[in-house]
Amino acid sequence: MSQENILKVENLVMHFGGIKALNDVTFDIKRGSVSALIGPNGAGKTTVFNCLTGFYKATGGNIMLSANGKETSVIKVLGEPFMMTDFISPVAFIQRLKYKMFGGSHLVNRAGLSRTFQNIRLFKEMSVVENLLVAQHMRVNRNLMGGILNTKAYQLAEEEALERAFYWLGVVDLVDFANRLAGELSYGQQRRLEIARAMCTNPEIVCLDEPAAGLNPSETEALTKMIRVLRDEHKTTVLLIEHDMGMVMDISDYIVVLDHGEVIADGGPDDIKSNPKVIAAYLGAEEGEEVTL
């Protein structure tokens, strides 16, 4: 892949009824980096995330994801409303109809982006391994006849999926819990399982929504290490929302700061630390006041 940026967000706007959650958000994420999206509560971080991952349909702007060897417009695959011009050009009409009928956030994942959730969303009444197997749905042998007759090809594909699942269980240190129900795990374990599940879809970029929330310091430490493994060993780009500034500054190559639905600063951790706008946004402080992050 020649392109340097894996994700390009241009002039993203999101309105909920009359509330403007995002006004003109623009930033790029470099391939192979660990980037963080920070900002005070209510700044619109999760809204950006939900737009990126295709759970909200942005009101305006553009999101381009270049992964899996192609460019994907996140807004387009969610299915846009028909336009007058579509009725003249059948090709455009059919494409739009296709995305209207079969489009949705799952296509964003298939394009190479996966995510975790702020309020953990595991399949609680399924076992830990099964959670990881579901994530590999697009990669396993889904041939109905093959599965019912239990053919060689099917067994091989299942075995491979299990191996991959156990590999990721090893990475997040959950092998001993493989046959437990996901809902029985502790909070920290559930967070780790969710990351493993996101990685099982083989993404090029993984978006983590507050991965360290509710973790104790040693768990956060382990998480930091894990994120480095994702970046260095698996060449996965990581984008995270996080409130733990220590961790963000420690791990990130690039930070985007949001406030009131706008990007107020971006750059490396050192730039951000000393940026007066960021400090003011976080502490509501008068300009010139001495604050350290």
């Binding site: 759970f55 949705g104 298939r110 579901v134 749905h137």
Partner: peptide
């Protein structure tokens, strides 16, 4: 079964 448990999570994993 995954869909029964959590539809949103399923979509985030690429399931239509």
């Amino acid at each position: 079964e995954a869909l029964r448990e959590d539809e949103i999570a399923c979509r985030s994993l690429g399931l239509n």
